[in-house]
Amino acid sequence: MAISRRDFLKVIGFTGVTSAVATIGGVLIGRGEDILKEIKPASKVRWAMAIDTRQFKTDEDFQKVIEACHKAHNVPNIPDPIRQVKWIWVDTFEKAFPTIEHEYISEEIKKRKFLLLCNHCDNPPCVRVCPVKATFRRPDGVVVQDMHRCIGCKFCMAACPYGSRNYNFYPPREFLSQVNPEYPTRTTGVVEKCILCYERLDEGKQPYCVEASEGKMFFGNLNDPNSPVRKAISENIVIVRKPELTTKPMVFYII
């Protein structure tokens, strides 16, 4: 897709503007790339998240987090419960961990609510099945959904064992009461999901949900022994969703 110098010279020739030739020297996107490499080294980063489910007590705690994400990403509020779009949502232990729930676990855990979102698996089935690389795993582990590329085949939704993917069954703009003008919406017929705010990560910020949780969620580089998420995981008892499928989820739940 990059524009070659020759292409550009051709057009300049056609338009007959000679003064522009002076600027051609720098019109090389490659040069920008070199500089960017120095700014953002592709080091061994593996983003992960730990959710301290003990600290999430009231509905307000959850709402703050969900709203921060949904407002920032223009996630529509669709009333039809079985065709909703949700990037991060709340469910019970029984539904979040159907393979390990048990009749006689503590009442407190049974009543506890869990924040659910894309697990950004290390071994993501959705990425494996996507026929156009619309969903792909970045070197830092974020499983991104490229809504420009998605053809809406819904294969990834069949492959995801966590129900974390959303298909736009309705034109999303009809269900937005307000928009964040800095972020796009989506269109009907594409799949979307949590993207771990990769744009913010690239700018050195934390995901919206982690920021809004006020210390109830830990985020960081799993490969760094001093990162908050690594500490949270090593100091507490954590579980992940459906570990038996070995998709290696990167969202840990502190019990």
Binding site: R128, V129, C130, P131, V132, K133, A134, R149, C150, I151, G152, C153, K154, F155, Y167, N168, T188, G189, V190, V191
Partner: peptide
Amino acid sequence: SVFVVMGQPPRVFFVLLHPTPNSIIF
């Protein structure tokens, strides 16, 4: 039958434009 499932029919040729050998649809 596969084609009518696609949510974005104009983009279907992406399957050939971005061939993905790890996907069974390919």
